[in-house]
Simulated scan of single mutants.
Amino acid sequence: MARIPYVDLATAPERTLQALEGKRSINIFRLIAQSDNAAPEVLALGHKLSRESSLPPVQREVVILRVAQLSQATYQAHEHHAVALRHGFTEEKITAVAEYPAAGSAEHLTDFERDLIEFTDSVVETTTAPDDLFARISAVYNHSEVVELVLMIGFYMMVGRVMNTFEVDLETGPVEVFRTASA
């Protein structure tokens, strides 16, 4: 059970309700919605970095799954496991992202995916990436995409910490979509 209750839609501010409109009614959104001040902006950034990312979906999910692993964010790993499968990941590839550089994991990943994992590890663990690794990422991504990559790593670190700190519950059963009375 989460450490604080999820948002009560009957008493949530209108701007929070608008930010939730059309999103899946999952517990992480319902918990973030408790922040009257920041919820709309955090939800919008999450949408931009996930649904509207300029990074290819498979590469994006490699990064998110790796951040979940490093952050020990079980909820995030669970949610993005399903997303990764929808984008063509195999169970072996999902395991490889989590376990890299363990023996046998590299065979399920491209060279660039391994670079993305190492870049993510560096940013999470030391707040930066070494020059040679930065150069390898920059050889594939333009400046805008490199910035988005670092923003994505930071965003999912933040959300993973919210999930862990508040002990957000995994969903059980079907998930509805938020609909307000004005919709």
Rank of each mutant, 00 (worst) to 15 (best):
V150N: 05
A135E: 12
N142Y: 09
V146F: 09
E145L: 09
E125C: 10
P130L: 03
E118V: 11
E125M: 14
F112T: 08
D121M: 02
S138G: 15
T126P: 00
P130C: 02
D121E: 15
A129D: 03
A129V: 03
D115Q: 03
E118G: 09
R136I: 00
D115F: 01
D132H: 10
T126F: 09
I117N: 02
R114N: 04
D132S: 09
V140T: 13
T127N: 14
E145F: 06
V123W: 07
M152Q: 14
L149M: 13
T110L: 05
E113K: 08
A139K: 03
M152H: 12
E125F: 12
T120F: 05
T128L: 07
T128F: 03
S144Y: 11
A135N: 11
A129C: 11
F119M: 14
V147A: 13
F134S: 05
T128I: 01
L116S: 02
A129H: 09
T120N: 09
A139C: 01
I153S: 11
P130V: 08
G154D: 10
V146Y: 01
A135M: 07
S138Y: 04
I137C: 01
E118K: 15
L151T: 12
E118R: 15
A129R: 04
R136K: 15
H143A: 15
S144L: 14
L133Y: 01
E118D: 15
L109E: 09
V146T: 14
L116D: 00
L133H: 00
F155Q: 14
H143M: 10
V150L: 03
V146Q: 07
H143K: 13
V150A: 10
A129T: 00
F112L: 08
L109Q: 01
H143I: 00
R136M: 05
T110K: 03
Y141K: 06
I137G: 05
H143P: 06
E148I: 10
A135I: 09
L116R: 06
M152P: 00
I153Y: 13
S122D: 13
S122I: 02
V124Q: 05
N142W: 07
L133A: 02
V150R: 07
D121H: 09
S138A: 14
R114T: 08
M152T: 15
M152W: 00
T127R: 15
Y141G: 03
E148N: 12
I117W: 00
G154C: 13
A129M: 09
I117S: 05
M152E: 12
V147P: 04
A135F: 03
S122Y: 03
V123E: 03
L133G: 01
V147M: 13
F134C: 06
N142T: 06
I137N: 04
F112Q: 06
V150D: 00
D131A: 15
V150E: 08
E148F: 11
S138W: 06
Y141R: 04
Y141E: 00
L109G: 00
D121R: 11
T120Q: 08
F134T: 00
F119V: 01
N142E: 13
L133D: 07
A139H: 03
A139V: 08
A135C: 03
V146W: 08
D131T: 12
S144R: 14
D132Q: 07
V124I: 04
V123Y: 10
